[in-house]
């Protein structure tokens, strides 16, 4: 294999019925930087039963080219048709890298595609940088529960495949390129080659569809919360700021919240505009999940709490008192204004 035969950064755009996974847009914006730094083109690949809406959203991210594959066999993600389509595209166009969002389906697709192409795949990267010396991508990912970061390279084969953790990068919409190329590829997969059939999707109970990963403000509460009777100041604060409540693992273990609200390495990785953590000590397991937040506020009565190491604002004080005081202060300000 001649590495230089492979050119261009690809982003696999995960979508269903025109609704694009947020991470795919994040990758288009980060992929732009990557493509610019290695002087290659940025290509989005859209696969689905319907692709028109997705393509027009992706255009706005400033990609150079969109390749799309349309067909009923792609209505739901299943491994076989998607791997077949991606393999054919990779063999034809020889991209140097394929970026895939680290969603459940993204992490289903990437390793299988890599194995079929006999190339390397990195899982769940949080940093992707083009290394001009080696001309490879340095994929950095957390390992050992966030205790250690590892930089992985795929230096012998192409394409370099990797999944990237959602909420790690920001979306950007600089606008459609005037010379954008839109290419349709027809790849049909006979139904006997599709071994999985999707029967239905059952939304989580009590899930109003809002995802903590997508909330602008997250009020995170730690094990200091002894019972749900104590939640009101935090919930009120979240409501006032238009945010959601997140929790650490002990509160999930106690059954106060489902795992959908668990923030951290083994729960949800979040990157809100504002994170406020109450009574959270700052175990790496948790902090690994919040570092992409724009503003991190930590409230803890222990001035040496570990979380203060990664907080922009470290409030030393009782979590309940500070939360109630914040609620009162915000209410007073809003009443003053109205």
């Amino acid at each position: 294999m001649v590495k230089t035969d492979y050119k261009n950064i690809w982003v696999y755009v995960e979508q269903k019925g025109g609704e694009i996974e947020s991470v795919s847009l994040e990758l288009c914006s980060e992929g732009r930087k990557l493509a610019d730094s290695c002087g290659e083109r940025l290509v989005a690949v859209v696969i689905g039963a319907q692709t028109d809406t997705a393509c027009s959203s992706v255009e706005e991210t400033g990609v150079d080219e969109i390749i799309y594959v349309k067909g009923d066999e792609y209505a739901n993600y299943t491994t076989d048709p998607y791997v077949i389509a991606m393999t054919k595209l990779c063999e034809k166009y020889k991209p140097s890298a394929v970026l895939i969002g680290a969603t459940s389906n993204g992490r289903d697709l990437a390793p299988r595609l890599a194995a079929r192409l006999r190339t390397g795949s990195t899982a769940d990267a949080t940093e992707i940088i083009f290394n001009p010396e080696t001309e490879d991508i340095d994929w950095t990912k957390p390992s050992f529960g966030g205790n250690l970061m590892a930089t992985i390279v795929c230096n012998k084969t192409r394409p370099q495949i990797g999944t990237v953790r959602p909420a790690t990068f920001k979306r950007a919409f600089p606008g459609k390129k005037s010379d954008l190329i839109l290419t349709r590829e027809d790849i049909s997969v006979p139904s006997e080659e599709i071994r999985t059939r999707v029967l239905e999707f059952i939304k989580d109970e009590g899930d109003d569809g809002s995802k903590i990963e997508e909330a602008d403000v997250v009020i995170c509460v730690g094990a200091g919360l002894k019972s749900m009777d104590q939640i009101s100041p935090f919930q009120e604060l979240a409501d006032l700021l238009g945010g959601m409540i997140g929790v650490t693992r002990p509160l999930v273990d106690k059954g106060f919240y489902t795992v959908k609200r668990q923030v951290g390495q083994s729960g949800k990785i979040i990157g809100p505009k504002l994170y406020i953590g109450f009574g959270i000590s700052g175990a790496i397991q948790h902090t690994a999940g919040i570092t992409s937040s724009e503003v991190i506020v930590a409230v803890n009565n222990n001035p040496n709490a570990k979380i203060f190491g990664c907080a922009h604002y470290a409030v030393v004080g009782d979590m309940f008192e500070v939360a109630s005081a914040l609620v009162e202060e915000l209410k007073a300000r809003r009443n003053g204004k109205s």
Binding site: A150, T291, C310
Partner: peptide, 21 residues
Amino acid sequence: SPTSVAKSFVPPDGEPGTVIE
């Protein structure tokens, strides 16, 4: 193996923030 670990490191601590007490 097509991939290898180029390096590993401890996640760096952030800059200390503003303390409010």
